[in-house]
Write a protein that binds this DNA or RNA. Structure first.
Lengths: 366, 366
DNA sequence: TTGTATGCGTTATCAT
DNA sequence: ATGATAACGCATACAA
């Protein structure tokens, strides 16, 4: 009852027990260096008997590798990050790596703390959904120090790091085009659209007009707005800023308010496009409480496929992001960087699938 | 461009730069021991200038504490574990701890590997949703070695570890009672009910009859079945084994099949109780595809509150598990164990809330 | 209050 | 192929 301390079985004890040096014991147990089969057996048996367990801290201290990668997610509670993390975990686990997880809640201060902690814990690399797409001295520092960084879901302008994203602009454009082709001329958008360094929606519209905008380093919801604009322009339709529901924060309440504004409007849109899962759930809530029939009264397409979209009333058409695949791709990139690959940073833009369902119809008036 | 190695700034360099010994530098940077303000400033400035970052591996190696806790979840992709993990992460982060995450997919072999890896990485404690409630030598070993273990969602018979669970039996009994009080006499159950060491459903029914069954060390779905039986017995209703949809595995497909069996039956139940989120989604899928109206054709109560249950048709009544709170409680228990609390193991049974919604009505025939 | 010396458990560098 | 011994970066007992 007194020996409930740590497992004090060290490699020295095993060596003593097996009658060899610690160096030899280390070689067979650690799987480096050479040794006779006879010795191997003896050492392994001693280790077994004593219940030896390697101390990965000590190993990491000397090798400089921890076989651990740090992950900074926005909020692991959201299906979005949960799925990505699952992909990361599967690939890293298969390679014998552990993952050290933190949530940033999309706040840069939290991200800074997280990255600092992870780096102090000597992770071999950082997979991160960055909260800020401009400054990020901490990520620059990581890259400079040789700590591999893989960005997820969004890219940073001048950072020499891999990024695994989704082609938000194209996917969004595709959705809106489906709606215009169905005959819709007034299509509402509900999107987060929190911060854009260039200003407000009007500024964004002009910037897009001037086409001097790199969509790959925008936050996803802005990329989706970009695709919305693309599609309307291709269809020769005007862009009514009042149809753009800018929620401004990532909140259900805000999304509900914006949806209400659009749908209770006398000139309400005949179709709606929601730019992410949270917005979709909030919008759906408003739609059912207003007793609007989909697709008779309103066509609907959602970005992100939530489970209820397949079994609710007529089915809700959705953009299916390859989330687990994103995580897997990010992890694979990370592993190859850790393995020494120092080729140019890769920007991976995965293509989402489209789940066509019964929520799209021609507008009533037409 | 050649110095892209690790951050080789060690405490020795800082000490040299500040003109003090490594011990002194360590004292001010590590925040232990005493030192003059003048020295402190000098050391801190040197650290700042050199961009010093403590190596937590080295610290952990000597202190025996890593300020990291290992978490073994079933599947982080499920909302259930994602929410719990969020709670764990919040509490541990506030205390300066990191979390090392693994998925077991509820497989004991995976769990074994995970626990081994985590312990080799010298985590200060283990928060785990155990895949096996009987043997678990690995957890016994952890406890014996003084590595705190906190169980989550289910408890293990003879393990001296804390456990944070939910009172599944009571919550389930409460749901079924609501249905019987609404006039239902034939209530279907859709549940995983994978393994029970005592045998099959019939054996379970006899065991419950004999009341020689400790419900706290059953898997949740069996506890929920227990509550189902409790409620029917209290109401003086017979228990028809054919109404118990034992899916046997944790799969949507299986759940759909069982739901279909129940609902396409000539003597189909007038009410349904689904025992977890996956079962609920699958059941809902079948219900809509059979075009059954809730609550006219069927009353429904679900264990676990998914987002669509609040905005779908009439609203689906649900048991709301305090998931984040479970994670927080588990983390708090863990922190106090790590801090040295060696009082008797605690079994925490949190009470879920009930979200009353429009999915309950009197049966048509009555 | 500060410095010296030693050790944490492992891998790495030499000899042999 | 094996063994002594020196690192790794930090904390800590003890001396000063």
């Amino acid at each position: 009852m007194n020996d409930k301390r740590q497992d004090k079985v060290t490699i020295t004890e095993v060596a003593k027990h097996a009658g060899v040096s610690t160096a030899t014991a280390g070689r067979v147990l650690g799987g480096y260096g050479y040794s006779r089969q006879e010795i191997k057996d003896k050492v392994r048996q001693a280790a077994e008997e004593l219940g030896y367990r390697p101390n990965l801290l000590a190993r990491g201290l000397i090798t400089g590798k921890t076989k651990t990668i740090g992950v900074v997610a926005g909020d692991i509670q959201s299906p979005f990050y949960a799925s990505i993390l699952r992909g990361v975990a599967d690939v890293t686990r298969a390679a014998g790596f552990g993952i050290l997880l933190t949530n940033s809640d999309e706040q840069i201060e939290r991200e800074l703390e997280a990255v600092q902690l992870l780096r102090e814990k000597q992770v071999d690399g950082l997979i991160i959904a960055p909260s800020d797409l401009s400054g990020s001295k901490h990520l620059q520092a990581a890259v400079r120090d040789g700590c591999p960084v893989v960005l997820i879901d969004r890219a940073i302008k001048n950072l020499a790091a891999d990024a695994v994203c989704v082609d938000n602009r194209a996917a969004s454009r595709d959705c809106i085009t489906r709606l215009t082709e169905a005959g819709h001329r007034r299509i509402g958008l509900i999107a987060e659209l929190e911060r854009w360094e260039g200003g407000d929606i009007t500024d964004f519209l002009s910037a897009v007009e001037g086409s001097a905008l790199d969509s790959s380093t925008l936050f996803p919801s802005w990329q989706r707005l970009y695709g919305y604009i693309d599609a309307l322009r291709s269809a020769g339709l005007p862009i009514d800023p009042d149809l753009i529901g800018r929620v401004g924060v990532y909140s259900s309440e805000g999304a509900r308010k914006e949806t209400q504004r659009l749908l209770e409007w006398s000139e309400r849109p005949t179709a709606l496009f929601t730019a992410d899962g949270l917005m979709s759930a909030a919008a759906m809530d408003v739609i059912t409480s207003l007793d609007l029939q989909i697709p008779r009264d309103l066509s609907l397409i959602c970005f992100d496929d939530l489970d209820w979209m397949s079994f609710i009333k007529p089915g809700i058409a959705a953009v299916v992001q390859p989330l687990t695949e994103m995580g897997e791709a990010a992890a694979r990139l990370m592993l190859s960087r850790i393995a020494g690959d120092d080729s140019a940073p890769q920007y991976l833009a995965l293509q989402p699938k489209f789940a066509a369902r019964g929520s799209i119809a021609a507008p009533l008036s037409s």
